[in-house]
Amino acid sequence: MIRETVAQAPASDIAPILLALRGVGKVFSNGVTALNDVDLTIREGDFLSLLGPSGCGKSTALRLIAGLSTPTSGVLDWRGGSPDRANIGFVFQEPTLLPWASVFDNVWLPLRLKGISRAKAAPAVKEMLARVHLTGFEEAVPRELSGGMKMRVSIARAMVTKPRVLLMDEPFAALDEITRFKLNNDLLELWQDERFTVIFVTHSVFESVFLSNRIVVMAARPGRVFDELAIGAAYPRDEVFRTSPDYAALCRQASDVLVNAINSTAGSHHDGH
C-alpha cells in the first residue's frame, strides 16, 4: 500500500485544528472494510474536498464526522469536545426536502425542531433564502422548483442554524454543468462571507480544484487516504480562474494523483461500481 504524505504547507496551516481523525476505521457487518486507518486533520475555515472513486469510503467518512455512524476503530478528536448537533450542517446528494412543505417551512425546520416559532425564525430564514438567491420563493413547494433551486433550499436549510461545519455529500453531482458552476460560485461566496468549515465529498477533479484549499484523495478497497494536495490559488475564485492555465495545471496535478489512487487498488479494475 502506498501512503504518501505531502510536505507542502496548506494555506490554512496557521488556523487552529477543528477536527482530527486518528486511525479511524469502519467495518460493516457484512465484512466490508469501508475505511481503514484514516488520519486526517481539518482546520478551522478549511474548504476540504474528499476526492476519490466510488467505494473509497468518502461518504462513510462524512457520515462518521456527522455523527450518523460510529467508527469501528480510532477516534474523532473535536476541538473543545464533541460538537453539539447544531454546529453541523449536512447537505445530501439529493435535495432531501419535505415535499409537502413550502420552501420557507423547509428552511425553518432545523429551527422549528429547536422550538423556535415561525415568527421568531422568520428573519433568519428570510436572510438565508436571500443568501441563496431564493427570495420570493418562500411559498413554493419543492416540486415547483428546478433541481438547482431545490439544492439551494437544501443549502439554506443546512446553513440556517449557522453551523461551524458544513458537510456536503456530492451535492451537485446530479445537476447540469451550468447550474453546477453557478452553485459552485455561490457556495464559495457564502463560504468566504461566513468563514465556516466545509468538508465536501466529490468525485469530480474539476469541482474539487475549483472549490477547495485542500484536497484529500482517497483510494478504494479498502477505503483509505491516499494523498493530500494543497490548492494555493487565491480566493475569490471566479469564471476567470475557471478558464485560467493555473486552474488547468492544478486539475492535471489532481487528476494524476487520482489516477494513481485508482491504480493503487489491488486488481485495479475500474468498474465504477
Partner: peptide, 8 residues
C-alpha cells in the same frame, strides 16, 4: 438522517 442530525 436529517432529522437525527438536527436532534429531533
Amino acid at each position: 438522517d436529517m432529522f437525527k442530525l438536527n436532534g429531533a
